[in-house]
Amino acid sequence: MRPSARNTRNRDTRSAALGIGALAILGGAAILMQRRTQPKPRPKPRRKLRRSAAIMGASMLVDSAMEHFRGGFHNKAMLAAPVLAAASTLGATARAPHMLPVHATSVAVGAAGLGFHGYNIAKRPGGFNWDNLFYAAPIGAPGGLAVTGLLALASDAHTARHGRMLAGFTALATLAETAEVALLHFRGAWHNPAMYLPVTIPPIAAALLLEQALHPNPKTRGAARGAQRLMAAMGVVGTGFHIYGVSRQMGGWHNWRQNAFDGPPVSAPSSFIALALSGKAALDLMEGAP
């Protein structure tokens, strides 16, 4: 074939094809494994929730540390986010009651952070407009810290009723996360077709989970579980995409001090893995696993 002089979308379409292929294999394997390993005892919901909180916390730690470093920590309160994310991540490995003050603080600071970020957006010229939503403090990000704290606290859940509540909460958190992804991928002009995946799969997973929360139905629970597994696989593939995304910025990883910040955030997609674990834990609880 004659080499082309013009700029083309080949890099995007090829990487999207590769990524979607990888997702199909990984997600398919995850769903199939679920069937096969049915008789074997699953990890307890508590362990899943702790792992979920730890992954979410680690993602928040990296994200808030980097973003607040980018902001020069000009407000000392900006230190609170990575510090608490670190504490909640470590704390998630211990029994929740001992760590209650830590996780509760994470929830409170995350909620307060929403206010700080809202203020940061509002004070820029133009106020609450699209451009400031794109580039000022990310409006929903502190919610991730609150979610971390709540997931860690939820690891004591042990009844089916707890499971329903957790399913509802996880579904709503997934939708919030989807909204943030939609905003940022819109900012990126959906330049890679695969950028539509994290605004497609998570809402489906959230809807199936929400259905279980509102009307527990063992018949469709398998589908809900499969969707959670697919979403977790998407978190893995998404991380790969973001690593590739940084590499194709000017200067690539060699210029990481710019591109790790201006490029796609490498730690972000893993939050979907955390939410998927939480969703599965919720379904486990509803099925009676303590």
Binding site: D12, G245, Q249
Partner: peptide
Amino acid sequence: VSAPRGKSPPCV
């Protein structure tokens, strides 16, 4: 460009 466009990386 404010995001990648094929062989054009976003503005630095």
